[in-house]
Design a protein around this nucleic acid. Structure first.
Length: 190
DNA sequence: ATACCGATTGCCT
DNA sequence: GGCAATCGGTATA
């Protein structure tokens, strides 16, 4: 049978099993006639009604409705009334799962990212900064990642990573659902 | 209706 | 290390 595309996979699995799949993938932003490419290096999985730390835990609201779309859509929300945070929705429609994009490395269009961020370092470190570098805002909430200004492309392969508790979360702290790509080059047995 | 808090960040002391 | 910016959601009256 045919292999599933990345976006098809996003609609089939849950956020925790798809989180490592996103590591190494590329998020492409074509906003305001500028292109910025980002390799994803840090993500956090959020579940649905079973995850007390998730925005979707208590059901749909005007803010989180796009989180209930089928996997492969973008969920963008405003945090602290100031910053935007971008998530990749996963799972079947109505399940309310998503993966927060916390950090990445800009691989193309760095000049644009630098201009948007107003600095040359930490271009896309932290969810708010990542969204700013790619000019992702509420206007992109609910868009499909297969076409349009914001798109998701497969990576070469899943990089090495470590799992830790989610940042800034006070509930379900026993779940190691934050995945951080580890720097390659350190040789390890196995 | 009002009060408090959050999947954050950058600037202050 | 501490704190403000700023707003939707949830809790409390």
């Amino acid at each position: 049978m045919p292999e599933l595309t990345l976006l098809e996979r996003l609609g089939a699995g849950n956020s925790l099993e798809l989180a490592p799949v996103l590591l190494g993938c590329v998020l492409v932003s074509e906003v305001d006639e500028a292109t910025v490419r980002l390799r994803i290096t840090e993500v956090e999985a959020y579940g649905g009604a079973d995850d007390p730390a998730s925005h979707s835990y208590r059901g749909p609201t005007p803010r989180n409705q796009s989180m209930f779309l089928v996997g492969g859509h973008l969920y963008v929300y405003r945090i602290y009334g100031i910053h935007w945070c971008a998530n990749v929705v996963t799972g079947p429609a109505g399940s309310g799962q998503a993966i927060l994009l916390r950090s990445g490395v800009v691989t193309a269009g760095a000049e644009v990212a630098v201009a948007r961020r107003g600095r040359a370092d930490r271009l896309a470190t932290g969810p708010g900064n990542l969204a700013e570098a790619l000019a992702i805002s509420g206007a992109h909430d609910g868009v499909w990642l297969g076409a349009g200004q914001i798109r998701l492309e497969p990576g070469a392969e899943t990089p090495q990573y470590v799992s830790t508790p989610r940042v800034g979360v006070s509930k379900a702290t026993d779940r190691l659902w934050r995945l951080v790509e580890t720097r390659a080059g350190r040789s390890s047995s196995t």
